[in-house]
């Protein structure tokens, strides 16, 4: 974590090589997070692009009270919802109205576990991703999502219940 903070501090001083390392460290994770939220490859790529540009522009505003990963995921989360809003406004509603809420698009070659995750409500698949893929503490998830810790736990409860049913 100290390593990530050092890296971000150098990015704040506009060090290109450090930015590239930060990108290598986080871009794929941001992509997977956005893919979990949006379930659309191209929109998820856009989230990565915009998130990493924001990291480059705003690295100096990172205050160090949270983990670097939580800070970056917070940006990615906003970008995901921004993109979704814009896409909806931009008349592509038909195409992507279903992006977040409806049953997952049938993607061939996708395993049944992935399908089960994708079919969860968005707030539940987000908790699953952040807990089991990113290994975040529930407190960090509560901060990131700006919800009470109890809500994190109850979302997890329902997510696990739904997954168990889908995978049984």
């Amino acid at each position: 974590m100290a390593h990530e903070r050092d890296l971000l501090a150098r990015v704040a001083r506009k060090d290109d090589a450090s930015f590239q390392r930060l990108y290598e460290e986080f871009a794929k994770r941001v992509f997977r997070y956005a893919l979990t939220l949006l379930r659309d490859q191209h929109l998820a790529e856009e989230v990565v692009q915009e998130t990493m540009i924001t990291v480059w522009d705003k690295a100096s505003t990172y205050v160090g009270s949270s983990r670097v990963s939580t800070w970056i995921f917070g940006i990615a989360r906003h970008k995901s919802y921004d993109i979704l809003k814009k896409e909806k406004k931009g008349g592509r509603m038909d195409e992507i109205a279903s992006v977040i809420d409806d049953p997952a698009p049938a993607i061939e070659r996708q395993g049944h576990v992935r399908t089960a995750i994708d079919n969860l409500p968005p707030d539940q698949r987000e908790i699953i991703f952040l807990t089991f893929y990113e290994n975040l503490p529930y407190k960090a998830i509560a901060d990131l999502l700006d919800i009470p810790e109890g809500t994190v736990k109850s979302r997890m409860y329902y997510a696990k219940k739904n997954l168990a049913e889908a995978l049984s």
Partner: peptide, 8 residues
């Protein structure tokens, strides 16, 4: 979950 997400 880890395996499934790694396969994306």
């Amino acid at each position: 979950v880890r395996t499934a997400i790694d396969e994306t």
